[in-house]
């Protein structure tokens, strides 16, 4: 009961004060070309006590609006419109300004839009997402897939690579693999000490082998050929 009473009371105050009919137009554009496509829509001030239906030619009239500052929005099922700030004063025509949701009403924007209001649809709601389809090219573009393919190729190609290596390089490779294997097995068996020592040993060897080329360099060009064969 309280609600209609309040409304009536406020409206009766309005009756005494000045009231203004706000008129405007929805101009058809590519997004919303006609009233049939727009469907039933309304122009509404604030929470929708003052409204006006949008007619077939896009025109709307919000009757008997009292003085004040209002937010005009177009209520439509499918289309998004800009909101506008409307100031109705006693003296002049209503002032129309753009309004961005979430910003304070004051100070008002310095841009004044023409009156009668002209609005057009900004966006048509797109409710659907395209279904995800199985895509072979997309699957192969996946980095994981590329890695897997790479590994697969390596696996197949490995025996041939090894076969084509010269025996010395092969020896070295096998030696390294064996070392790595021993470190791994040491860690796996829980013998951390042995594992560490083997790492140390490997590191020592590394430094030793690193130092050899520097020494060899001093030796001159003869050793260079030698290094080549070693590597």
């Amino acid at each position: 009961m309280a609600r209609p009473f309040l409304l009536l009371r406020i409206l009766s105050c309005i009756a005494l004060a000045v009231a203004f009919d706000i008129t405007g137009k929805v101009s058809w554009n590519d997004i919303c070309p006609s009233a049939t496509i727009l469907g039933q829509a309304k122009a509404s001030l604030d929470e929708g006590v003052f409204t006006g239906g949008i007619t077939v030619n896009g025109q709307f009239t919000i009757p008997d609006v009292p003085e004040g500052t209002y937010l005009l929005s177009i209520i439509s099922h499918d289309f998004a419109f800009d909101q506008l700030r409307i100031d109705i004063t006693n003296s002049s025509l209503p002032k129309v300004r753009p309004y961005i949701p979430g910003t304070p009403m004051n100070p008002p924007s310095s841009i004044l839009l023409p009156y009668p209001i002209v609005l057009s649809a900004k966006e048509k709601a797109d409710y659907f997402v395209p279904p995800e389809r199985f895509n072979l090219a997309g699957m192969f573009a996946n980095p994981m897939m590329l890695l897997m393919v790479g590994v697969g190729v390596m696996m197949l190609a490995m025996p041939y690579l090894i076969k084509n290596m010269d025996p010395e390089a092969l020896e070295e490779l096998k030696e390294k693999q064996a070392k790595m294997g021993s470190i791994q097995s040491a860690f796996q068996s829980g013998d951390i000490k042995a594992g560490l020592s083997s790492i140390m040993a490997a590191a020592e060897e590394q430094t030793a082998s690193n130092s050899t080329p520097t020494q060899a360099n001093r030796g001159g060009s003869r050793t260079r050929g030698n290094k080549k064969t070693k590597r």
């Binding site: 009536l8 409206l11 009766s12 009756a15 009233a35 049939t36 039933q40 006006g52 239906g53 949008i54 007619t55 077939v56 709307f60 009239t61 009757p63 008997d64």
Partner: peptide, 22 residues
């Protein structure tokens, strides 16, 4: 007062005749 296209339901005219509180 509202006037509709009888076949499609398009709103042709909307007119307030008097204030609702009257």
């Amino acid at each position: 007062l509202r006037n509709f296209n009888a076949l499609t339901g398009e709103l042709l005219l909307e007119k307030r005749l008097h204030l609702p509180q009257l």
